[in-house]
Amino acid sequence: MTATASAGLAGGTHVSPAEPRPGPDSLVPHHAPPAQRPSRGRPYATGLVTLWLSVVVLLPLAALAVTSTEDGWGGFWSALTAPSALAALRVTVLVSAVVALLNAVMGTLIAWVLVRDDFPGKGLVNVLIDLPFALPTIVASIVLLSLYGPDSPIHVHFNATRYGLVVALAFVTLPFVVRSVQPVLIEADKEVEEAAASLGAGGVTIFRRVILPTLAPAMISGTGLAFARAIGEFGSVVLIGGNIPRHTQVASQYIQQQIEIDQPVNAAVISVALLVIAFATLFLLRIASSRSLRRETAS
């Protein structure tokens, strides 16, 4: 036990520069060594990753959970079920769900056009898709406010309405579905579609039976990520949303308000609720995408 540990230790510290060379050689012919290597080979790396995750993710989350129950479970429950808190969560989930579905359709369509069609300026559009990722979200809010706000040049007033929230969130979550569907679509075998067509399948049937099953895992994960991002979004809705309690106030704005009025426990409780929703979303996503992946490989 100690021998292997010290060997691993030595491998981790001194021999590691030379290690990549024998690594690939042994990797290619038999698959036995790599199965063992990840578990024992790098105790430092595993330790470092654990420490890093603890400090960066787990400890803050634990502290948040502790803060949220500072007033006991009764306090937690009453903070969670305060009508304005529930309303904020409801608005958040509702608008995020609408945006996620919108993204599922439009994102897939955009990815399709970008992969299958050729048109002038395609490269530019491709770059444009990533802009919402790179752009500070508050900039999105200002942009939308100047277009749909009280001084709207096109006389469309989305300011302080749920439409405003949808537009803002659709803007910032645009890349998720596009970027997860696009690579799958590039990899997808076009001949299968052609074969289906030559066997007499119509466009709708081909889409439903051939294309959709291939894209589904990517669409689901992209949509889920968009949803998870949308429920926590703050910057893009802060100016266009109006922050009207029970109408357009989203959970992140409610949290900020509770901090400003010195109710940190309420803020922590709603944060925990958001966290749970986000975690559940990602968890369901894993299950859904692995299941549809399995179904696809089985068929």
């Binding site: 009280p150 308000q257 009025i261």
Partner: peptide, 19 residues
């Protein structure tokens, strides 16, 4: 009173934006 801006400045912004 249907909105709860955090500060006097925020209240002005809210009003100027049409609420």
């Amino acid at each position: 009173v249907h909105v709860q801006p955090g500060s006097g400045r925020e209240a002005t912004e809210t009003f100027l934006q049409g609420t």
